[in-house]
Amino acid sequence: MLTLSAAQVDGALSFPGLVDALETAFREGAVQPVRHHHGVERAQGADSTLLLMPAWTDFKAPNALAEGFIGVKIVTVSPDNNAIGKPAVVGVYLLLNGITGEPLALIDGPRLTQWRTACASALAARYLARKDASKLLMIGAGAQASFLVRAHAAVRTIQEVRIWNRTHANAEKLAGELRAEGFSVEATQDLDSALGWADIVSAATISATPLVRGDLLKPGTHVDLVGGFTPLLREADDATITRARIFVDTHAGATKEAGDIVQPLEAGIIHKGDVLADLHELTRGEKQGRESDAEITLFKSVGAALEDLAAGIMVYKVLAATS
């Protein structure tokens, strides 16, 4: 069994390649049981959470491969870790042979998640962003932000990037890192102006208060919401939701876990029929993505086990061939 580090994941993947792999995965489908949540009670301090995200090749599908794979992401969330200088969220991805069940690889979970999350957003932008979109606003400067900038640049010709973050020094730091890679990028403290400037707005924060204001968005903008992964978190306001044509990674996940969708549904601002398509429907051509250059589109992702499986398979195949 291979044990693969974050650096090895980086070496095995490319943004264009993984976007294509995710497109194929959503088109062909996989078996994705409901995500398992288990509370781990502590006698002292905050309780932890154990998350299990399994998926496997759909062997009953008409185009199913004879081999196939099984995968499960194992994640723990331990809030008290921050006090001892460790990340609160850690995990691994276990990839198995789909026929024998034998372990094939144990892959760095956080890095695999960063890649697949960014490339899922880029896949959505392939269907939803204007073809000539060239100005990207990145809201948030955390670990996911640089991956989102690179992924969007893999599907659209991004000529200018602006980064906004509550702590401006972190935005400046990320801007410097991306400039070193050849991006034309600046950190901004004027979020309102940047919202009206951008062709693509990507947000990866844990904000409970909306940061994306729909009244400031220009016609033709594509909004990519990544960070709000619980019903209590919200990155875009009601004006954004009502102005936009809405798309999600999966209907089941977004309508139960994403505050940007759940809260407007509960308030009656939108209805389930206003969520026009998910990535399965877009990649299969069952639903239409962007219909005009003037419309505002919105994509909300919460993550899907299928994405981890596709990324894990890609990493394994590349590195197994060279080991």
Rank of each mutant, 00 (worst) to 15 (best):
A198V: 09
E266W: 00
V77C: 11
F15N: 00
V226D: 03
L191T: 10
G303A: 02
A118S: 05
A171N: 01
Q263R: 15
A175I: 03
R35H: 08
H36M: 13
G227E: 08
R166N: 08
A129P: 01
T188D: 06
K300S: 10
L137S: 05
L298G: 07
I84S: 13
N82V: 13
T188K: 04
A46W: 01
V223W: 08
A143E: 13
L104D: 05
G45I: 06
D47T: 12
D199S: 09
E67I: 07
A12M: 00
T113I: 03
Q144G: 03
V92D: 10
K135R: 15
M138V: 05
L137M: 01
L104Q: 13
L65M: 12
V34E: 15
D293Y: 10
E41I: 11
A311E: 03
A7E: 08
E295T: 08
Q263M: 15
A88E: 13
P264V: 04
G214Q: 05
E307F: 01
S193V: 11
A304E: 12
P79A: 10
V185E: 02
I296Q: 05
T240K: 05
G268T: 08
H38L: 15
S193C: 05
Q32R: 12
A12R: 00
D215Y: 12
A294I: 15
G98L: 08
L136A: 03
A194R: 01
K317E: 12
D47S: 12
I313P: 02
F299R: 07
P54L: 12
P54H: 06
L217T: 09
V19M: 07
V89H: 11
L148W: 01
Q8I: 01
G68C: 06
V75A: 03
S146F: 03
R150F: 05
A141T: 00
A267L: 10
M1W: 10
R126Y: 05
K60W: 11
D132V: 08
R35N: 09
V302Q: 08
R284D: 11
A294D: 15
P210S: 07
A141Y: 00
L216E: 09
I313W: 06
E177M: 03
T113F: 01
L65R: 14
N97K: 07
E235P: 06
E286T: 11
V77F: 12
D238R: 11
L232F: 13
Q114T: 02
A252D: 14
T255W: 00
H152E: 04
V92L: 12
A88K: 09
S323I: 13
S14W: 04
Q189G: 13
L309N: 02
L217W: 08
L22G: 04
D20M: 09
M53V: 13
Q44N: 13
M314L: 15
I158S: 01
D10N: 05
A267T: 06
D308L: 09
A12P: 00
E28H: 08
L22S: 05
H280A: 08
G312Y: 02
R213V: 09
E67K: 11
R150N: 04
C119Q: 03
T209R: 12
A118H: 02
D278M: 07
T24P: 04
T24D: 09
D199P: 06
L123R: 05
L279A: 15
K256L: 10
R162M: 06
T283V: 14
I99P: 07
T209D: 14
C119H: 00
L232Q: 15
E286V: 15
S207K: 10
L211N: 03
